[in-house]
Simulated assay, not measured.
Amino acid sequence: MCVVAIALDCHPRWKLVLAGNRDEFHAREADPLGRWAEAPQVLAGRDLQAGGGWLGVSEEGRLAVVTNIRNPDGPDPAKASRGALVGDWLIAGKAPEMAALPGFNPFNLLLTGRDGATLLSNLPEPQRVPLSAGIHGLSNGHPGEPWPRKTSMEAALSGWIDRDATPEELFALLRDESLLDDGGVPIFIKAPVYGTRCSTVVLVDHQGQGSITERRFQPDGSDAGEVRIDFRW
C-alpha cells in the first residue's frame, strides 16, 4: 500500500473504517482479494513475487496494512519481505519483535486486534506506538514526517465522517487524481508502468459485522474487477 487512512472509534455506525490505495508496478503479479488456501480465515490479496500481503483482515479479529518508506536507493534484496509482516499477523497474530525490525526494508505497519491498534516502523529508528481513537494516515514517509498524500487522505476521511457519507463515496475519494504539492503525485496514480493497482475499503460496525472490498485497475485506470467479502469479528 502507498496511501491509507483509518478511522478508529470515531463514527456513530462504524468502529473501524479504512480506505487505501496500493501503488505498484503493473507487471508485478498478484492475486486479488480472497481467502488464503493455507489459512482460510485470512481475507487479503497476495503478492506472487514475495508471497506476502499488503492489506487484509482475519476473521479472528485482526487487520494489517503495510506501506514502504521511500528509499532513493531502492529496496535491499537481502532483507526480509515486508509483506510477510502482514501474513504473520493475519495468520497467527504474530507481531514482529522490536529487535527484528531493522531486518526489513523501511516500512510502516499498522496492526489492529482485540487489544487495540498499533503502528510499527523501523525508520528513522525502530518504534512501536499504540494508536488512540481518531483518524490516522500512512504513506511513504516515516511516522511524523509531513507527506501530502497522507495529509490529504486523512482530511478526506475526516470529511467523509462529518458528512455521514455512504461507503461508495470512499472509493470516490480514492480515485482523486488532483495533483498534490509533493511533486505532483495524486491520491490515484494513473500511469502505464507504475500506478494504483487497487483500492480497498474495510468497514466494521460496532457489532463486529464487517466487509472488505477491493477494486482493481488497469494501467489506463479502467476497472479490472471487484471483490467484496463480508466477515464478522
Rank of each mutant, 00 (worst) to 15 (best):
W147N: 03
Q127A: 13
T112W: 15
L110F: 12
P126I: 11
N122A: 05
M153E: 01
S152Y: 05
N140D: 04
P130C: 01
G116M: 08
E97K: 09
G103R: 12
F104Q: 02
L109I: 02
A117Y: 02
P102W: 05
S152F: 13
A99N: 05
S132K: 14
F104D: 02
T112C: 13
N108T: 01
G103L: 11
H142R: 12
S152L: 12
W147Q: 11
T112Q: 09
H142A: 14
E145L: 07
G116I: 00
K150V: 14
M153P: 02
M98E: 11
L131S: 11
L123V: 09
A99W: 01
L119F: 11
K150I: 06
L109P: 08
G113M: 10
L138I: 06
L101S: 02
L111I: 11
E125Y: 08
E125I: 00
P130M: 05
L123E: 14
P106M: 03
M153C: 04
G141S: 10
A133Y: 06
K150E: 09
G116E: 01
G137T: 04
V129C: 01
N122W: 00
N140W: 04
V129Y: 04
H136G: 03
L110S: 07
G141L: 03
G134D: 06
P143C: 04
G93E: 09
G93V: 14
R149L: 12
P143Q: 00
S152H: 12
L138M: 13
G103D: 14
P126A: 10
S152N: 08
G113H: 05
N140L: 12
L119N: 07
L123I: 07
A133I: 06
T118D: 04
A100C: 07
T112Y: 12
F107K: 03
P124A: 03
S132C: 12
G137Y: 01
I135H: 14
A100D: 12
M98A: 05
P130R: 07
L109A: 10
S132I: 02
P148I: 01
G137V: 03
W147P: 01
P96Q: 10
K94Q: 15
M153K: 04
N122Y: 07
G103W: 00
G93L: 11
P126G: 11
N108P: 11
N122I: 01
K94D: 10
E125M: 08
